[in-house]
């Protein structure tokens, strides 16, 4: 049934050229079912591997010469390192640096997913709610596990704002709990929705160009959506980088709660 459904999708590729949702379709490349689990290598998997390879190439090939005076690639690797390090240190202080490798990996992964996804005919991994949701749950999971291991019950002070009159606590504690529970949702949906909306907008604008060119005399206004597509592409590049940064800095802020609970 699943196979049929996927094959059906591929057969309909021609009809989907103008469909803005079609770019998010998962297409299997190799069917893998170890232990009866569906671990098929899909286009999403392919681009995850491409992302990891590109990020590793930047960080490993770029620093392979260990030059005292860095070249371009090494400069980029060092800038990425120092940028994330300063972000982690700013949000989490010195103790926050133990999460630096995690935050760095997260930032680099999301950044490369977002930016590579902007290249035409590629697949945007971060436009899948499963991916962003899993990353957000990983962050919150680390916050809860580390917070409880490190601080024990003092971690629960996170839900009790200090310096607040006792009478207000019955109202504030539920609000704090709800805001904590909303974190994985907002963290994942923010990234997912930004990527999804950006790609749909680009596709719709690009589709306008094609439709107008095929619409006789209306072809004369086709440059308008074309110019818009160029502007949007630049804007989407900005959003791609910004959302990776937002994801990383919010991760730092949440991790800081685990390190230093209590406001």
């Amino acid at each position: 049934m699943k196979q049929l459904y996927r094959h059906g999708r591929q057969d309909e590729d021609e009809e989907h050229t103008m469909d803005p949702i079609h770019q998010f379709t998962i297409k299997p490349i190799a069917d893998l079912h170890p232990f009866g689990i569906d671990a098929s290598f899909t286009n999403a998997s392919l681009f995850m591997v491409i992302v990891v390879l590109s990020a590793a190439a930047l960080m490993l090939l770029g620093t392979s010469s260990r030059a005292l005076v860095p070249g371009r690639l090494q400069s980029m690797a060092e800038i990425a390192y120092e940028f994330v390090a300063s972000t982690v240190r700013m949000a989490g202080g010195h103790d926050g640096m133990r999460f630096f490798p995690f935050v760095f990996t997260l930032f680099l992964f999301v950044l490369f997913c977002n930016v590579i996804g902007l290249v035409p005919y590629t697949f945007s991994v971060t436009s899948q709610i499963a991916v962003t949701g899993a990353l957000a749950l990983l962050v919150i999971g680390i916050v809860i596990v580390y917070g409880l291991l490190q601080n024990g019950t003092r971690f629960l002070k996170l839900f009790v704002p200090s310096g607040v009159p006792f009478a207000l606590l019955p109202f504030l504690v539920p609000i704090e709990i709800i805001s904590f529970l909303a974190r994985p949702v907002t963290l994942s949906v923010r990234l997912f929705a930004n990527m999804l909306a950006g790609h749909i907008t680009l596709k719709v604008m690009g589709g306008f160009v094609v439709s107008l060119l095929g619409a006789g005399a209306f072809a004369i206004v086709a440059p308008l959506p074309f110019a818009m597509t160029i502007l949007l592409a630049a804007f989407e590049l900005f959003v791609a980088v910004l959302q990776a940064y937002v994801f990383a800095i919010l991760t730092c802020v949440y991790l800081n709660d685990a390190i230093h609970p209590g406001h």
Binding site: A39, S45, V52, P101, A130, V131, L135
Partner: peptide, 27 residues
């Protein structure tokens, strides 16, 4: 497609593999 649960399992498996590999390489 992003809300299709059929895609979740393989995606999460490959996400954990690739993210884990990247984490190991970085750290």
């Amino acid at each position: 497609p992003p809300f299709d649960p059929v895609n979740f399992t393989p995606m999460l498996i490959w996400l954990s593999l690739s993210f884990g590999l990247l984490y190991l390489l970085m750290s």
